[in-house]
Design a protein around this nucleic acid. Structure first.
Lengths: 248, 248
DNA sequence: TCGCGCGCTTGATCTGCGTCAAGGTTTTCC
DNA sequence: GGAAAACCTTGACGCAGATCAAGCGCGCGA
């Protein structure tokens, strides 16, 4: 079906990930050109809110660079992060009116957007887009459910290790690196954001990060620059075996 | 688009929910007939496993009657439920090889199934199916993310109230009842299953159910038959305001 | 260059929920 | 009808993680 060639297209990736993520170039060059016509870019600064939960959302798009988070907040202020958007991740809900979550840029960020209406029209004309989007949504669903296990059943230490392993994995795949040898990356999240993702307090996050460092599972340079000498060890700490945990 | 008429078809609902859930009768009667040809039914007894995580899954389908759960299990036995499948819910992942979770029937259950290959072929020929499936998957994603908030940030009492409100809501909508007046339903889950859904132990579930009963938020007849005299009160206990929490 | 603020760490204490244990009730099956 | 097996409740106790509190260090603007 579609998946077979999505890999190959990522070679001639332009500057807009949605191009080969949401559609398949081999099958529909005409439609691609049309998408090209209606796309536009939006930039956000670190800390800026992209949309508030419940707001009307008249575009869909994908992250080109930088990082954003999806969060939910209760009336009394308790907040839970429900998604982490890294470059190439899709944002938006074709067929839906409003946003379901707050979307906030945690670093400077660029998005490639399409107005929702034309995008939906195009989706109706181009079956592969809906199929590709279904694929991506299933991936996100898997990631969300994977995360439910983390939230519901893992200890604080395991939660931290799980988050680090997910970020490490995503980071490596963005840079087309393998998983062998030490992994080095920068944490894109504050301790507080990590806590919101993990259902912990920032103090507990800080303590457990320190503990993992003390035990040699990770090394830290400054607060954010992480080295993972042995990825298998990290996975073990996360309570994962050999699996392919995900993210969204 | 599609959604407009899905409502109306549910009137002449036969015995197979997927018929009007995954496709739209008004648009493609031919395709519907073809679906009809390839569908078949499977029955499961309470406690029976439908598929194991990782197993090859060569069908998709939907629940006709009864209840099933999706669960994940860690090597050391900790388990987390990640979905509750009620009648009309879709099961399966078009475009995926294996099952991602254990699917277990918790009551006697009947499913309406389609072999995956023909279903996928049909999806490729019939754009509306992919779009409808995308809709449903987005709903499940919302439900999963809603649940992440429950798992990550709510207290034991709030978790119980959240679960009860979700079941009450789903139950009422299945029976086409309104949400006014006392809600009465049977819990489809054991205390242990509730615990697995909520990230708690069964003892804590039992204690909190007793507490909600003592405080008059719910009434119990036997262990399973629940009456909710004031749904708004239950929502308040759940930490929800007026929202539309979901399930999958 | 200073000082202010934000992000982070670490300590002390508290508490909600898990753990362990015992016993009750309902269902199942001979 | 009786015994065994599920399923559920309740109590006593301990601990992981929350809460409260103090202080550090780095970056930034004046």
């Amino acid at each position: 079906m579609l998946n077979d060639h999505t890999q190959s297209i990522s070679q001639d990736c332009g500057d807009c990930p949605i191009r080969h993520r949401a559609v398949c170039a081999r099958c529909e060059t005409d439609e691609l050109a049309r998408l090209e016509e209606i796309k536009y870019y939006r930039s956000f600064e670190a800390g800026q809110t992209v949309i508030w939960s419940g707001d009307r959302m008249d575009f869909v798009g994908s992250v080109v660079s930088g990082i954003a988070t999806l969060t939910q907040t209760m009336e009394d202020g308790r907040t839970q992060m429900v998604g982490l958007l890294l470059p190439s991740d899709f944002v938006g809900r074709p067929g839906r009116e409003g946003a379901a979550y707050d979307v906030v840029a945690t670093t400077d960020m660029v998005m490639c957007c399409f107005r929702k209406k034309p995008f939906e029209d195009m989706m109706a004309r181009t079956p592969h887009i809906a199929q590709r989007l279904l694929e991506m949504t299933l991936d996100e669903l898997d990631a969300a459910r994977e995360w439910m296990l983390v939230l519901g059943r893992k200890t604080a230490r395991e939660k931290i290790a799980s988050l680090l392993s997910i970020i490490a994995r995503r980071d490596a795949s963005l840079q087309l690196k393998g998983m062998d040898g030490p992994l080095i990356f920068d944490l894109p999240l504050t301790r507080e954001a990590m806590a919101d993702y993990l259902g912990l307090t920032l103090e507990t996050v800080s303590r457990q990060v320190s503990a993992l460092k003390r035990d040699g599972v990770i090394h830290l340079e400054g607060k954010r620059h992480v080295t993972v000498p042995d990825f298998a060890r990290l996975l073990e700490e996360a309570g994962d075996d050999t699996d392919g945990g995900m993210l969204a």
